[in-house]
Design a protein around this nucleic acid. Structure first.
Lengths: 200, 200
DNA sequence: ACCGTTCTTGTACAAATGTACACCAAGAGG
DNA sequence: CCTCTTGGTGTACATTTGTACAAGAACGGT
């Protein structure tokens, strides 16, 4: 009765890879479990035990694959950042050439505040967690570098930076607010930022 | 030797109010100490003991004035938010009537990223901490409501919201980046957001 | 002077947590 | 078949943490 979690995990784990002693996906699965813990309970609730429970692995598994907790956090959040950037690049690739930029950006914001809200929450927790954890600063820097490059490639350097700031601000304000902001409001803001016409 | 901190605190505390048993500023001093702990070590390092050490009071004092840790965090961060809003209002009051808005906003951003960087860090830690702590959401909401009102009062509703998003985004990106952004870069961004002229 | 109220403090204790470590399991090489 | 290496697991233990609590100190009212 000392480790109450281990028992339940055993049941979950026995679903897959119960017979083989090797599981190359273990490490990644644990990292992803850490991300979900951040999304659901916050970055300060990321403990070896919480992550192990979320991943369906015993406690010893997390300490085996990640020497220290900071390693786990760094790898997990770096992965989250990469996922997010990849998602942004996909969005950019799927964007039609002559598309109304303000409308497209509004879609993107609503996408990140709605279906992908959890991922957005994780990204922002990572962002401020990096303020006091040097190991995470690189991932944060890479994130808004990717953001700037993306927006710059559709306009110009100054406008790109401006748009990334607007985007970042809208996301930050949007995740905290209870009701999601209206689509019209977002779009008007982007149109105003782009100079009343909304087209470049 | 059980509570190593208590001894040292005694020395610090005896500087002031050592004779009187009542100290009406105690509560506020503890709350402010919590803010400095957030600024210097992050919101997840806010413990009764860390705050007590920072405030120069014994451990029992923090548990007396704040029943639970969430109370302490809520009061402290609410106070930080109020300070920040008050600072914004002061800035607005001191702003000359016909001032170049883009230049003034750039000054404000640089002020928050430079001399007031710690306060900015605290504000953002509060902001994302509210994502998983309902007790803090009110303070966060009030913060960007004040921000919107402030900027709206100098322009119009849509532009005000847009500016608050830009402001928020620039601050967030600015606190994480190692070197502070250049003044020219900030100002150009604001001018571009305000429609190339930078004047309203 | 006495008492009750409020403030203050030192200490205690259970729960949670990071991490170490001693055992299993399975396959490779002989 | 034996063994050695590597992956995996359960448990133990010291530390940190939140919180409770008993005892003391100052002050106001009577």
């Amino acid at each position: 009765m000392t480790t109450t979690d281990s028992g339940a995990q055993h049941t979950v784990r026995s679903r897959r890879a119960a017979s083989s002693g090797k599981d190359p996906q273990r490490r990644e699965r644990i990292a992803r479990a850490a991300i979900t813990v951040v999304a659901e309970r916050g970055v300060d609730k990321v403990t070896h035990r919480a992550v192990a429970a979320a991943a369906g692995v015993p406690l010893g598994s997390t300490t085996y694959h990640f020497a220290t907790l900071d390693d786990l956090l760094a790898v997990a959040l770096e992965q989250a950042a990469q996922d997010n950037v990849a998602q942004l690049r996909e969005w950019a690739k799927a964007l039609p050439a002559g598309q109304d930029l303000a409308a497209a950006l509004s879609d993107l914001v609503l996408h990140f505040l709605g279906p992908e809200r959890k991922r957005t929450v994780v990204e922002h927790e990572l962002y401020v967690a990096a303020l006091h954890r040097p190991a995470l600063q690189q991932a944060s820097t890479e994130w808004d570098a990717a953001l700037r490059d993306l927006f710059t490639s559709y306009t110009d350097p100054v406008t790109g930076r401006m748009l990334s700031a607007v985007f970042c601000g809208l996301l930050l304000q949007g995740v905290v607010r209870d009701p999601m902001p209206e689509r019209d409001e977002i779009e008007m803001i982007f149109r105003r930022a782009l100079g009343h016409s909304g087209r470049t």
